[in-house]
Simulated scan of single mutants.
Amino acid sequence: MSRYILIGIFLAVSFLLGPFNKVWAAEPFEPLPEDEFQWVQATARSSYYFNKQAMTYEIGSDGYADTNILLVPTVKLFDNMQVDDIIMKRQWRNLSTYRFDELVGAAEYLRIDLQKKTVEYTDCIYLDQGYNSLYAGYERPTQDMTTMSPKNVDYKFYQAIVDYEHEHRKELLEKIADQVRPKDLKAAGIKVDKDKVKKERKSKE
């Protein structure tokens, strides 16, 4: 498994990261691998990606996927000006800047309600040059896409994720077919083998 996809897995398990031993290049936005990360956009200060391999649906207490709730690990890579700005703001707020000279980006874990079009940030952490956590988390408020301008940078990012889910819903559900209700599989055009589904679910109990 490559070191990059571990970013998504690490986010999904409460940010338990191991070292990736990656040397950061001088270029501020070194592209992440396209087979794992979907690049969406670049602003003057940041480049936006989401992990399409780790994208999945929330599993409820009943063991079934809620196909309306999308969980998405994302990564933003910063240029030097953005790094300096973050450090300066933390200094103003008397927050630790220990090892922030190694800051290269942020990993954020999104919980998107596809019906309400709300985006909740369940975890946000800064990343060092090895894509490890700097052990400095931050919070972002829940976003309501229905009240945002389509020109907003974050809105464009969220919409790209929602569009990807719509286009790839079938394959996303096939990955977790044993945790998806038969009616949801059928709605996605996936042939349901009820005996196989029951057998797979039973083997996991």
Rank of each mutant, 00 (worst) to 15 (best):
A26P: 00
N68C: 11
D101I: 02
V75G: 07
Q53L: 13
R111M: 14
W24P: 04
R111S: 13
I86A: 02
T142I: 13
L32I: 01
I125C: 07
Q129Y: 05
V83I: 15
L71P: 09
S96R: 05
P28G: 06
D163V: 04
Y57N: 11
Q143R: 14
G130F: 04
S47H: 01
I87F: 04
W24I: 10
V83Y: 03
D85P: 02
E139I: 10
Y48Q: 10
L77S: 07
G105D: 07
L114N: 10
E102M: 06
E34Q: 08
D66T: 05
Y164S: 06
N21Y: 11
Y158D: 04
R45V: 05
L77K: 03
D123R: 09
E139G: 12
M88H: 13
T56P: 09
L134T: 03
T56V: 06
T118S: 11
A25M: 10
V83T: 13
I125A: 06
I112W: 06
N132C: 15
L32M: 07
V104T: 07
T67C: 15
Y164T: 09
M88L: 08
D35M: 12
K22A: 11
N51V: 02
A107L: 11
K76C: 10
F100I: 01
L32K: 02
F157Q: 02
L77E: 01
D35P: 07
L103T: 03
Y109I: 02
I161C: 04
T74Y: 03
E27S: 08
Q91P: 00
Y48P: 10
R93G: 07
T146W: 05
T43Y: 00
W39V: 02
W39R: 09
I69S: 04
S61L: 14
Q129L: 05
Q143D: 15
P141H: 08
A160S: 14
A65S: 15
V83Q: 11
D154A: 10
I161Y: 00
R111P: 08
D85V: 00
L95I: 12
F157P: 03
Y64Q: 01
D35N: 15
Y49K: 04
Y49N: 05
L103N: 04
L70I: 01
L95A: 13
I87A: 00
Q53K: 07
K76E: 13
D144H: 15
G105S: 06
D79P: 07
A136H: 12
E58H: 14
I125T: 10
Q115K: 15
T118A: 12
D113Y: 00
D85F: 13
E30P: 06
V72I: 12
Q143F: 11
I125H: 10
G105L: 04
R111E: 13
N21V: 00
V75P: 05
Y158S: 04
A54K: 01
K76G: 03
T67A: 11
E165I: 04
K89H: 13
V72L: 03
Q143C: 08
D101Q: 07
E165F: 08
T43C: 08
Y135I: 01
D84P: 01
Y64P: 12
T43P: 03
A65I: 00
S61M: 14
F50C: 05
F157N: 09
Y48L: 12
